[in-house]
Amino acid sequence: MNFRLGNIFREVSYSLRRNPTLFLGTLVVIAISLLILGSGLVVRSAVENATARWKDGVEFIVFMNPDSSQVEIDAIKAKLDSNPEIIAADTRFVDKQDAFIEFQSLFQESDQIRESVTVEDMPPSYRVVPRNAESSVVEALADGFRDEPGVFQVVAAIDTIRAIENVGDNLNRQFLILGAFLLLAAMLLVYNTIRTTIFSRRREVEVMRLVGASNWYIRVPFMVEGVLQGLIAGLLTLPMYRVVNNFLSSLGDEESLNLLDGLRAPSGDVVTIWIAMVLLGAFIGAAASAVALSRYLDV
């Protein structure tokens, strides 16, 4: 094969200059489809990250009334300690002072909320680590404390986790379906771009064939064009994944009192997803142009 890199890139750049709008349009569609597909994966990674923190020490929280008596508090402790389903050693008591500090840290961006409470307003609580982390077991255990004297509220973290997982699963599924459809559209666009390029360069192709250029020499610039579209589109998506990730973590901060904290894909995962999307983009470009070449380039 008689490839000269300079020749290939000259052919490709000439082709791009001849039809820049088609190239750019196709590139944008590939980028959007990769972005949606990749965002689905970022959401999944973020959900796994958020729920992993809870899964390690799944707990429910028994909040006492702020004015509950020491006797009531001790009674709950005794009940927790005596329950074989609960790991007493890992169960932690958060007193008014600690609760106040936690609250201050949770709402550090809102002075109004922080200043509206005092240490005395804070409910002490038990952070309970059950032996069995299944949601039904946790729910049953939590229910056993709801009607105890002095108990203000029992919150099972598992509910929130399930909610996050459900939202995450749905988002992930929708992103994947939408991304797959868009990817199909992107492939058809690459196919048509290459077809148009072949058509606009049919005289060159004809001459190349007549003077004895090898089949690969003729094909490679077209394939490079397809792959280039996919690669550039893939590369462009990186900053967008970061935006998606930041959006996810902002959800946790504002609305969910720390339960959504950690809803953020680790940056290693984001880079892996990005690389996968760049490769997928290149593959789409190569595959679509290969099909177009086999159908429209009779060499």
């Binding site: 008689n2 020749n7 001459v207 190349m208 020499y217 003729i218």
Partner: peptide
């Protein structure tokens, strides 16, 4: 889009 010389050279370039 190619000059006379480039048209002729093309036949040699594409066969390496």
């Amino acid at each position: 889009n190619r000059t006379v010389a480039q048209n002729v050279a093309f036949a040699l370039e594409v066969i390496g």
